[in-house]
Structure formats: C-alpha cells, structure tokens
Design a protein around this nucleic acid. Structure first.
Ligand code: FES
Ligand code: FES
Lengths: 141, 141
DNA sequence: TCTAAACTTGACCATTTTAGTCAGGTATGT
DNA sequence: ACATACCTGACTAAAATGGTCAAGTTTAGA
C-alpha cells in the first residue's frame, strides 16, 4: 500500500498555500520553488483542486491561487478525492453483489478489506488543513 | 492508496488454509480452485510465506501446506511483511535525515505521513488470522 | 517400481499506473 | 505591450503489477 506523489504533493502544496495566502494569492511558481515540486505537475493538480472548489484562481500578473474554504473545513478526504487518490482495498465494484474477477459472490476476506478501508478513511476524515498548519507552527516554535 | 492483489491473495489463501488444515495438509491446487487465484501466482506467494516461517510445506502426493504457528500468533503484519506488501506513505528513506528527491531536509507534511503510516500499521498489528477465522464463522452462522 | 500429485525455482512478459514533460494556449495587472 | 501566471491536452519513460511458462524435485500410493 503506498501513497502516491500526487496525493502527497496536493497536501504539501495546500499546506504551503494556507500559510501564505493571508495577503496575496500564491503562485504555483512559488510553491514549486519552496516545496521542490515540478511546476507542470502542480498545474495538473491544482486544476483538479479548483474543479472541486478547494481553491480559487486569480489570473494575470500577481495572480495565483487562494483557498476557497476555511482551512478547518478542508479535510484530507476532500483533497484526496479531488486528485483521485482514493483508498482501494479491493478490485471489485462496491455496489455489485459479485466478487473480484466476476465471481458470483464476495470473497472470504471481504469484511476485512471493508474494515481496513474504513479505518484508513477515518484518518483522512478527521484531519483538516487547519490541523496541519497548527501542527507545523508548533514544530516551528 | 491501494492494496495489491498479492497481499490480498496471501491473506485469503491463509484464511482458507487455516480452515482446512486440521486434518491434512492443504494443496495449493485446492486453494486455487476454492478461492479463484492463479496456481502459479499462489506458488510465488507461498514460497515467501514459507521463507518467513508462516507455513510449512509437505512434498509429494497428498502433500501441501500447513500453518507453522498458532493462528493467534499470525498477524496481518507478519503476512504482509512476508510478501513485501509494505505500507509506504513516503519515498524518502526513513533513516536518512534528507528528504525526498535528495532534498536537505524533510518536507513540511512529514509528520502527517508518519502518523498515517502508524495508523495503518496499527490495524495490521492488531489483526490475527484467528480473528479472521472466527469472524467468518460468525458470518456463516 | 512407476507414476501422478504437489512443491520448487527462476525467468519472462503484457498491461497499467505513475510521475512527470512539453507545447501550446488565455487572461490581466502595470 | 508585455511579463506573469493560469489553463489545457497530448505525450512518454520508467516502474510496478499481476500474472504466465518452463523445467525441475520429492514422495505417496498403486
Ligand atoms: S475483494 Fe473482491 S470479492 Fe472480496
Ligand atoms: S515525504 Fe519525503 S521528505 Fe517528507
């Protein structure tokens, strides 16, 4: 089970953004330089964050991105959903009664994987961008 | 974040094994048929489970595999470690002081990923093969 | 003793996913 | 006008995944 860079970058970038957006919009270029993430890749990521109304964009010179919600209302779940970083412990469709590889029934360990998925998602639901900023301020002191 | 088939199969196969190993060793062929997992793939998986002393093998006709420990002592952690299904929330080496892509310091969200990794691993450490067999018996009643 | 069942080993491979790059745009403050 | 910064879509190298295939060795049982 690994977390992809896309998901990791999305959170990193938003934490960076949340720290600096008090005064002016923050440009991807700045985030790219500060966090060491490819600018082109960041653009793909922010395109999705924008579609999911997590950030707003301001075009033109001195433009950039701004948070579209209170940091307290942006949960990791929202961020990961936006960039398609979903937790998948199974291959079969959830809605379907059938199991993996088109088997007629769900597998013998199916409950376990459901539990696992819930366990991980709970973590994401309980963690907001605000937690991360605060957490980091503490570290800085 | 997704769980790979290798990890999922390993657990499925062991639960199957644990259910049937009371009397005779269980052949991979049987597991393959019952659980719908490729025999050749199962062989790869069991080779690793054996190296990690989770199962024992008995060769020849009527041979097969048997658990090498009490089901209560086989945690998901052990199984996943055996088949290299590790939880990785970061790319950088844990021991190193340096961050991802050879950066001089760890990233701004590093604590978060450590927390996440611990959160997931806790689940795996607290779940044993015995839990899974019992759990499933309940479901069967 | 012969044979078939079952473990053992290692190489090989097609497909998918990942983590980007590249090449063009378009909008806008100064 | 022009530099800055967002916007869009196509493309791709490298890695991971989920297997397959081939060629063994061991041993119970007929
Ligand atoms: S994981 Fe698909 S059937 Fe259980
Ligand atoms: S994840 Fe590698 S530096 Fe934080």
């Amino acid at each position: 089970m690994k977390l992809t860079s896309k998901g990791r970058y999305a959170v990193m970038a938003l934490v960076d953004l949340a720290r600096f957006d008090n005064i002016n919009p923050v440009s991807l270029r700045d985030i790219s330089l500060r966090q060491g993430i490819s600018l082109d890749y960041l653009e793909q990521i922010f395109s999705k964050l924008k579609k999911n109304e997590i950030v707003k964009s301001i075009r033109g010179t001195q433009g950039g991105y701004v948070l579209n919600k209170n940091p307290n209302d942006i949960k990791l779940t929202n961020i990961f959903n936006a960039v398609d970083e979903k937790v998948k412990t199974v291959q079969c469709k959830k809605e379907s009664k059938r199991g993996c590889n088109g088997k007629a029934t769900k597998c013998i360990t199916h409950n376990l994987w459901d539990e696992l998925e819930i366990h991980i998602n709970t973590f994401f639901e309980n963690k907001s961008l605000k937690d991360l900023i605060n957490n980091n301020k503490e570290t800085r002191v």
